[in-house]
Nucleic acid binder design. Structure first.
Lengths: 216, 216
DNA sequence: AAACTTACTGCATAAACGGGTAGTTTGGGT
DNA sequence: ACCCAAACTACCCGTTTATGCAGTAAGTTT
């Protein structure tokens, strides 16, 4: 039934036993093919893959360059590559770093083989496979970094656009030109913005606006 | 085998057919029990649940109060409640809103019943069930909002402290007083900051600093 | 029609800012 | 002792802001 081309998978994993297991698992399963298996990032880069991989499994704790750092490297080198982190512990900061660098999933090594294969496919098909604990941690991080904190008075769309300009360092004069209005109108709006945000300067307004997620 | 107490589940879902299906599914499955089933948030609040639910399935698009808004309400009323969003479309902003408000998962209605039951259990056990597309969207959002984006030149601790003051709207003069230095020294530092950040104004510096997560 | 809001414009002025140039002081290195 | 880089101080000057006061035109409300 599997007439589709197999998913080209590669690993970077320092533990030899695990690496062997993975190679066997992938090599022995229909629909998957192993195009590389290395004990370190450096080796992978030096020797190269036998074919451009679709999915890369990256261990976090590696001798030499860490997996969490290598994510960016690989994803820049192979833009269509999906990278899955594979590690023993669910460390908050490593998860964070990996995801920010562009990893698309994060699995624990205790993941059973069937689930692992499924996750590789899921990653290849645009999903973001994670173990439940990790998914929850990601959400927590997310909730922490992104809390709306409503303002008492809402800014108009116009005011928000102006605020964005200010955040970019635009002067009143330039903003006036962009909006095709007089500089005095800009002043007028700025005053309203300041009133609503209870601030008294551009920088304060910008910082408050960003914090309240009104802009950016 | 299921000697554990069943997972108390409730729904808010305006489509009557879907609601019936859910009630039947949950009611008819071992290990799950339905403690409420309402067509709107308002009804749920008015009538109350037959028991404090463990997991709540919330539709996004509801008549009256939207599910994405109700998340906070429910999670404040029942702090140990796990809330799963259940909807037809994966809308970026609704996902964002729901998660920020405290939802722990986000499923599409097309999710097959078996997977749905599994997700409820997963939510109850501290996981964060999401469909693959949604998981990927969450990661994307995450990458967008939290990108370190290294600066080419690092700011000194002193410069960072000054930058925080600027973000609060402090003037050069006041900053000088706080640091017990002359206003010219403040200027000196500001210039260095601007050079390092490649900006030309306070507001631009503040916005860049916040975005780069140098401050706040 | 009178009263009121909204968005906008104009002017004035003190204060704050940005950027150039230049001269101390200080604590390491070698 | 010498050099070097850093942190700091100083002055200048044109530009930009913050903010008060005042006025107009279009659209609502009553």
């Amino acid at each position: 039934m599997k007439t589709e081309t197999p998913i080209k998978t590669a690993f970077v994993e320092d533990d030899e036993v695990t690496r062997e297991c993975l190679t066997l698992l992938i090599g022995g399963t229909d629909g998957y093919v192993c195009v590389g298996s290395f004990p370190s990032v450096e080796d992978a880069l030096k020797q190269g893959f036998t074919a451009t991989p679709d999915v890369l499994l990256l261990d976090i704790h590696l001798p030499g360059m860490l997996g969490s750092e290598a994510v960016r490297l690989f994803s820049e080198k192979y833009p269509r590559l999906q990278i899955l982190m594979l590690t023993v512990y669910a460390e908050q900061d490593k998860i964070f770093e990996s995801i920010c660098n562009g990893a698309c999933g994060y699995l624990l090594k205790k993941t059973p083989p069937a689930r692992l294969l499924e996750s590789i496919r899921e990653a290849h098909e645009g999903g973001a496979p994670m173990t439940p604990e990790i998914a929850r941690k990601v959400l927590r991080l997310f909730q922490k970094t992104a809390r709306p904190e409503e303002t008492d008075e809402k800014l108009t769309p116009h005011e928000l656009r102006l605020l964005s300009l200010l955040a970019q360092g635009t002067s009143y004069r330039d903003a006036a030109e962009q909006f095709r209005v007089s500089i005095n109108t800009i002043r007028y709006h700025i005053r309203n913005i300041y009133d609503k945000l209870h601030v008294h300067s551009k920088s304060e307004a910008v910082s408050k606006a960003i914090r309240l997620r009104l802009i950016s």
